[in-house]
Every structure is written in C-alpha cells, then in structure tokens.
C-alpha cells in the first residue's frame, strides 16, 4: 500500500475551524467547554490572550487544533498565521519507539495509530513526541491523537478534516502526489512573489502531514529541526537490551552459585569455620580461628 498524506497549505487557511469541528464530529469527541478550558476559569484567572485559538493546546478530546500565530514583521506590522496542530504521522515516529506495549504503531499507509486496547496510559509517547501531540485522557487512562480517520480512508473517503475544508487548504492522497502538488504550489507562489516553504518532506524521516508555510516553522509553533529525542533512542537501543542482559546475567550467576553449593548446609559451613557446635570447649585461640578460616 502506498503511503498516504495530508497536505496543509497555510496560505489558503482562513482559520474557520471547520476542520477542527469536523474532526470532533466524526470522532464523536465532546466540546471542550466544561472540561477545564479557558471558559471554565474564574473571571479573575482568565488571562487575556487576544487569540482565537481555543482550546489553547491539543487535548484528549481535541485531536486537531487550528492555531493562530502572530508574526511581527520588520516594519512592526502584525500578520496572523493560521496553523494546523495534529499528529504529523512521522516515518520515524518517536511515540512508536517510546511505547512500551506496542500500542502506538505504524500502519501500512504510513500513518501512526494508538490502539486504545493496548495503551496502558504510561504517557511515554506524550513525553517523546517532539511536536507535543499525544495527550493523555485521564478518565480512560489512554493517550489520544489523530488517527487520520482510518475508518474513513479504509472506505476510500478523505479524512473528516479534509472533507470539511471550504478553502482547499487541506488535500489528501498518496504521499508522492501530495509532495508533487506541494512543490507545484511553491513554484506558483514564488512566481507570484509570495514564497512558501515545504515542511515535512524530510523531517522525522518524512511526515505524513505536509505543511506549506509562509514563514519559518517556529513562527507556527513547529520545531525547526524535529528529531527523535536522544533519551528515547537510548532507552530503546541501549537501556532496554543492556538492562535485560544485566538482569539475565545476575539471575544466571546466582543460579550457578546455588547449584554449585547444593548440599552444603549452614551447619557444615559454620563447622568448617568455627568448629563443632556446643562442645563446651574453651574459646578457640587466635591461631585455631585463623586455621579455621583458611
């Protein structure tokens, strides 16, 4: 099966949040009101952010978030950059490496999915992801993130977010085709004097959510050079095998020690060192003790 991908063109996004709502609707996720978001805070604790972004970050019940990013130009003018925050479906997925149970896994179409039946809620994927995507659902004790509407794509449909986009900012198809489309748009935009850059072609071995950006990635809250954290790599490729070896060698060593001393009782051991029990004899001399120990 060819890898599939979503192409998000930030220059076409108007921040309508249609994709965000559609994601919630298709995946039957509740509204975030009443679950600890900004609206639920007491008046005095509501910091004015002047942002349309809501909720402020991804949550277990919000797998796709339209981000509103302000960019100050050299002349002091402000631009509003619309971004899309959701699972990037990395080829070299840190969450898959970090997951101790195999609940987070790569799918044949290149996407990443968390199997909630196998997830034990350890949050290792939450900590490993360089994009900060998976979120822990405390009530269900499982981590949640976009699964690229695998139930829809399996039936030949587009993911819910893509279907809902009214401006054509989202496209879905085979990854090579999405890359071709992205590059064609870059050429066109350059000709028009509105340069775009492609994010996701090589990052993390290749993302399955490609971004066409009008500014550098960090302006959208994306890491400029995302990579699998060294701690995750070390855990998987060093700590786990070395730990297993240490455990096995310790067990083996102690087992051999046991077998080597089968039949040698405490009584015999003490007799060899201290002499016979309760003889009523006077204390052993230093020489005798030394002889016993040798």
């Amino acid at each position: 099966m060819a890898d599939k991908a979503i192409l998000f063109d930030a220059s076409r996004c108007i921040g309508c949040k249609g994709c965000q709502v559609s994601c919630k609707r298709w995946n039957m996720l509740p509204a975030s009101i009443g679950t600890g978001t900004w609206q639920d805070l007491p008046e005095e604790q509501r910091a004015f952010t002047a942002s349309y972004q809501n909720p402020s970050d991804l949550r277990a019940d919000t797998m796709l978030l339209v981000t509103f990013n302000e960019l100050q130009g050299d002349d002091g003018s402000l631009s509003l950059l619309m971004g899309r925050k959701s699972c990037m479906h990395c080829t070299d997925a840190a969450c898959v490496l970090a997951c101790p149970t195999g609940a987070a896994s790569k799918q044949p179409d290149g996407t990443v999915r968390i199997d909630h039946e196998r997830c034990i809620g350890c949050r290792y994927c939450n900590w490993a992801c360089p994009f900060g995507i998976p979120k822990w659902d405390e009530a269900a004790n499982t981590s949640c993130m976009c699964w690229m509407c695998a139930d829809r794509t399996a039936e030949g449909q587009k993911p819910a977010c893509v279907s809902a986009c009214p401006t054509g900012a989202l496209d879905y198809g085979e990854r090579p085709a999405m890359l071709t489309l992205a590059k064609a748009r870059i050429s066109k935009a350059e000709a028009a004097g509105r340069p775009l850059s492609l994010y996701g072609e090589k990052e993390m071995g290749g993302l399955h959510v490609l971004h066409l950006l009008q500014a550098k990635p960090s302006a959208y809250g994306l890491p400029d050079n995302p990579k699998v954290p060294d701690t995750v790599t070390a855990w998987q490729s060093v700590v786990k095998p070395v730990g297993a070896a240490i455990g096995a060698l310790t067990f083996l060593g102690l087992g051999l020690s046991y077998l080597a001393n089968v039949g040698y009782s405490k009584k015999q051991a003490q007799q060899a060192v201290l002499g016979p029990e309760d003889t009523g004899a006077p204390p052993a001399t230093a020489e005798e003790e030394k002889a016993g120990h040798d």
């Binding site: 701690t231 240490i246 009782s265 405490k266 051991a269």
Partner: peptide, 28 residues
C-alpha cells in the same frame, strides 16, 4: 524516565543479590 529505568535495572540486580543472600537461598 530514562534515569528511572536505569536506576531500576541496577537496583533490581542488587536486590536479586540481596534476596539471594539475605533470604538464605544461598545455603550457608
């Protein structure tokens, strides 16, 4: 997370030895 696991590995190995000797699995 990484250090928690590393420490667990070494603690585990030490405790295996501790149990072997302290619990008297070692015959003497």
């Amino acid at each position: 997370g990484l250090l928690h696991d590393v420490a667990m590995i070494f603690l585990g190995a030490l405790l295996m030895g501790h149990i072997y000797l302290g619990a008297g699995i070692f015959q003497p």
